[in-house]
Design a protein around this nucleic acid. Structure first.
Lengths: 248, 248
DNA sequence: AACAATCGGTTCATCTAGTGAACCAACGGA
DNA sequence: TCCGTTGGTTCACTAGATGAACCGATTGTT
């Protein structure tokens, strides 16, 4: 009951994704598997079009588009996306700012949808970005509605600072989570990108608990403290609306 | 020299992506591998968080977000995305319409980035959408700048119609490709979705040839023939700009 | 109510095929 | 020249993948 080769293959694949472009020896060390084994896996994955080697650059490996194409269609996130897109669109029109939809993956939030603003100055996260929970409005609300154990486990890990304004002390984060719970939405001024403020609210499935979050982001010069409450209640209302439409 | 189990595992994964939500027996049939083997692979992939089973619904399988998160970071597409995002943002502001960035995968174009418009009426392709080349503005420009062999090989396959307006005759497509080459950009009125017109231009790496395309899309009621040239030159200029900034 | 055809899941004898230590040749500093 | 890399290959050993056949539970049909 192990399916070892498959497990190592996936580990190699994840290592390639993380370290790309990367060579054989480095991968072998990263995955802690002999070179010969890694080599065979690489060749196999190449045949399957999941990875490709750079023409130059000593033939280092990278993830191929095909892998992305396979995994991006559907995904559990898409159910959420489908029910969220309508309300998010309305929220975008109402606020005029960038809207993000993110779901948790391990210790990060992954941005699975974005609606843009017409403003020249705009907040920007590439789709598929993986951002730290404690440094983002989406992550913070998600944490605020997660179980105590999860939060404790999360705060065990070192909290990297994305900007000088990122909260890096566990107590500080805990206090903020409490504030978020009573307030109903999160506010993150410059914690992820300097000069960008975001306001977020969690999507909560009745059965599964928190499954993701949404946020409104824009330059701190536009999203000023006097707008926090207006945007906050709008985001929270939209989140509630989506939550109720959630499958399950 | 085969790494069979890895190959079947990936095949199972791709089948899950295509058929999700899907059950054991159906997968077994799709991949043409005994149930027992598929079962073991599924359990392994679940342990690795690449797939998950629906709580209800008889435990059917779907791709998990984690898989998406792994493959979306980086990927050959992302290099393109990184250099493209700035110019695309400018193009979006200039035109006010939805911008798509797509790269080829097998016989399709895969949408890897999108900048949308604040308009209520908006063109919309989900990220990761796989669209036929002959039915899309992005695909057509890509074809127009591909090798003759590639085009011939592509046109060998039956050309499915996405809408009544899709070009389905090889000669028709060939003629259009010629027009695109002399014009510098592609125009696709309603070929992919009825009522949506798109204008595209290819991203061409000096060393690798065409590596992807960009397009401006919107309702045909807004993107009228009198705007074709304006948008066309804008798209083509942006594509050239990105092409020059391309790595390699 | 009995039937047949699904479903998801498990068992186990067979032997394929994955493993990994040890080995290249080639490159690049020092 | 030497040392530490790199990517890549060989091969004896046996761990571990395979797949036909099985089970109990649903489901829809007669």
């Amino acid at each position: 009951m192990s399916t070892r080769s498959v497990t190592t293959a996936i580990h190699v694949l994840e290592a390639v994704a993380e370290l790309q472009p990367v060579g054989l020896s480095e991968l072998s060390r990263a995955v802690e598997v002999p070179k010969a084994t890694v080599q065979r896996v690489l060749v196999t994955l190449e045949e399957l079009q999941w990875i490709e080697r750079a023409e130059r650059d000593g033939g280092k490996w990278s993830i191929a588009v095909h892998a992305y194409a396979v995994t991006s269609r559907g995904s559990s996130g898409s159910r959420i996306r489908d029910v969220a897109i309508g309300p998010l669109s309305a929220l975008q029109l109402e606020t005029g700012e960038t809207i993000h939809l993110a779901v948790p993956d391990e210790l990060r939030m992954v941005v699975i949808e974005r609606l843009d603003t017409p403003h020249v100055l705009r907040a920007f996260l590439a789709l598929g970005s993986r951002i730290p929970m404690h440094a983002s409005a989406t992550g913070l609300t998600f944490l605020a509605h997660s179980s105590e154990e999860f939060v404790r486990a999360y705060l065990q890990h070192p909290l990297a600072a994305s900007t000088p304004d990122t909260m890096v002390h566990p107590q500080e984060v805990q206090a903020e989570l409490k504030a978020i719970r009573s307030r109903g939405y999160s506010i993150n001024p410059g914690g992820l990108s300097s000069g960008i403020t975001a306001i977020g609210a969690a999507l909560i499935s009745r059965e599964l608990g928190p499954v993701g979050s949404i946020s409104v982001s824009g330059p701190s010069s536009r999203i000023t403290p006097d707008k926090f409450q207006e945007y906050g209640t709008a985001v929270a209302a939209t989140a509630r609306q989506i939550s109720m439409a959630l499958p399950g």
